[in-house]
Design a protein around this nucleic acid. Sequence first.
RNA 1: GUGGCUAUAGCACAACGGUUAGUGCAUCGGUUUGUGGAACCGAUGAUGAGGGUUCGAUUCCCUCUAGCCACCCCA
Length: 499
Amino acid sequence: MPYKSREKSKIIPNKPTEDQPQEKSKKTPQLLRGMKDILPEDQHYWDFISRRVDATAKTFGFGRIVTPVLEETSLFVRSVGKETDIIEKEMYTLDDKHGSSISLRPEGTAGVVRAYIEHGMLNRPQPVKMFYYGPFFRHDRPQAGRYRQFHQFGFEIIGDKHPVLDAQMLMMTYVFYQEIGLPISLQVNSVGHPECREDYKKVLVDYYKKRKNSLCEDCKNRLQKNPLRLLDCKESDCQVLMQDAPQTVDYLCEECNEHFVSVLEHLDGLEVPYVLNPRLVRGLDYYSNTAFEIWPEVYNPVEEDKDEDEENKEDKDGENANEETEKNIEPVKPSSQSALGGGGRYDYLVEELGGQPAPAIGFAGGIERLINEIKMRHIDIGQPTPPDIFVAQLGDEARKKILKLFSELRKSGFQIAESFSKNGLKPQMEMANKLGVKFTIILGQKELIDGTLLIRDMESGLQETVDYDTIKDELKKRLANHGVRKNSRSTNRSSDNLS
RNA sequence: GUGGCUAUAGCACAACGGUUAGUGCAUCGGUUUGUGGAACCGAUGAUGAGGGUUCGAUUCCCUCUAGCCACCCCA
């Protein structure tokens, strides 16, 4: 990163041409469009999500599966659907060295289903419950909450079509967001099995054809290409038409209808709140019957906590008050990308991909979007804990010895920070302070000779000489005390704030 | 893929058609060769790339690239 080319050089054109051989470019390499680095300081969000996914999956008895990022192109064409935008224009597709077409996965279900078939999972107790998280790729134009490499997690239940499984999947999804503390709404619909859907499509197209003139340009296209999408157009004229448009649920066959009713009954029994959304359709071809999405509740930062203690302000609470008001005023843009995730049944996909028929249901959620929401709403995900202690040294001899101490303490399970390459004590203390460690151990000439160490309590600034050999016990004792003190302190503090 | 806005140091911002492109934070060093959360002093570091107009462009124009926003689509 520190490297910077002074030379100004021509940008290599995007399309590699023959007359542009592998001339060395002096241009500093750059992130590919739509890609994003996840830096150390953001890592705790990602850790948090993966912990939550793991925990939720575990309590529902799901096993993790990791499938490759690269698959045969045909896997996605056959599952996601030839006609979809994802396949038509958004896949990263390339020829491997033998000329077969391979693609970066644009979504997760296809790979899981492929694995289900390939490993004969139909011989396991059914249904098989699996979850995943990882990177996915779509060559779309980047935008808020939309990247070309993005991350999703997902849950899949393959091998049974009982409506209780739909309900379980919905509950699991709901619970996942609930336990994070994110207010969401669960939007539910049924699109029926393929025949119902075809019937419905016909009726829908008929309906719109008669009113074609008042449709927007996009919708005229959709009428041809993807009629179900007519239902979520944002144009006001189209929205008016939508009001009276036929609804999927009215065109379900008896079986699909029963299934859907049963799912909803189970949901009611579970007391999982949901919103029946007859206009909800999903973009991928393989969905059938139950379809659902997770929408974040509209975020309204202004409403948060408006205290009316204007008068107090002048007197005592200079800093605290400022901090708080700052937080509330901080401008937060609501995300325009509405869905945090979505899912549904895919009863015909396993068969479509050449396996024995096996009905299934799944969900996939976007991690970047979820993290956005978490940040926007200041949801508590726990703070990354600083290291316990810092070891500081003065002089070359001390440096040698401190390295050994570091290694011993590390083995004993302490979390230690250091800054071995620094010389003065001051920069080391600064570092210790910035990191927020509780204690700093100092080893200089004097201590080297005496066989002692200095322990400095970073909060109080008090320091004490201790015998080198007793350091581990000393630290253990002090860290234990510190924990207790800190806890009692922090409860005091919070009550102070409340009053 | 379509449209709109934008591009100055690691970050946040400033400036001007004209000498050396400023400030804050951060980083590094010093005031103190053994002490952090304070102060002071100093240093490193930038006009996204290419072309054009001009005596002179970071500023004006074009192209490219990237970012943001909306559409499309979706997570």
